[in-house]
Amino acid sequence: MPDQLLYAIEAGLNGLMAGVLYSLVALGFVLIFKASGIFNYAQGVLALFAALTLVGFQNGQIPFAHLINAVFGTDLHEFGWHLPAIVAIVLTGAVMVGLAIIIERYVLKHLVNQAPIILFMATIGMAYFLEGLGDIMWGADIKKLDVGLPQGINETIDTVTFNALGYGFFIDNLDIVASVVAALLVISLTIFSQYSKQGRALRAVADDHQAALSVGISLRFIWVLVWSIAGFVALVAGIMWGSKSGVQFSLSLIALKALPVLMLGGFTSIPGAIVGGLIIGMGEKLFEFFVGPMIGGATENWFAYALALLFLVFRPQGLFGEKIIERV
């Protein structure tokens, strides 16, 4: 095979892997949108916050050390212990559930029946708040996240492809792990929403709030549940992205990358989020590979949006979204 084609295949494969990570974030969006009709801009910041908290727990950082030092003139930094990754992950999960309860009690409860744009704005406000909170709690410096996931080039694929094609593909182990985790996550979420009692309640709420209320489903509990799940998905996304590129502010920007994924797949479809992520991930890598050099590179910044825009003009509800029916 010609080299150019091999390089393109490699870029495409890497794009697919990156797409899986986009899908992970998009999944959190879809869950919340389905259950409460809220377009949750804070999903990316949730991932950042989860990753920061995880690193903080692992390294035994004292929360709010910077603030406490500034106010009381002390010099606190660390507890001086290192938690094992699994304990830190469980603790972070608990924090995310606590966060879901707080968000439900102090924000969402008061915004029932508001226009979607108001709710969207509220989540942007929450995103700002969480971003500031995360930085104050754990410090704004770039942190290294290591929960023991394998990293670096996958030797097996390298060798096998080298022997078969004469060119070794560079595939990161972490990306493979991320794909497996994403697949497991989607399967377990689907099973949860199809077969468990709470999952059915969740789908009922998504279908019709009032009808769900009238058959005795607690809306507030469902919202806490769904935000907890979104927090958990954010934690997984935070771990994957954090291991890949360090825990830093730019982590919250992946939320913006997840938006075109959502548009492509449709706001209400879990498979749509996955397929959309794969298309966007592969599309932007291939576009950068073939067209990028001609027009100056760094096309990844906008390609996803342009692609989604093009798609929407022909299919306004996205690939898998429910058909939009408008009545007067």
Partner: peptide
């Protein structure tokens, strides 16, 4: 007399909280 970066983070939190409070109190 706080450090500027700390003040910037507190500012983010306050702006975020104010937006949410505003939306709740007077959409």
């Amino acid at each position: 007399g706080w450090a500027t970066d700390l003040a910037a983070h507190v500012e983010l939190m306050i702006v975020g909280a104010l937006i949410v409070i505003f939306l709740i109190a007077e959409p």
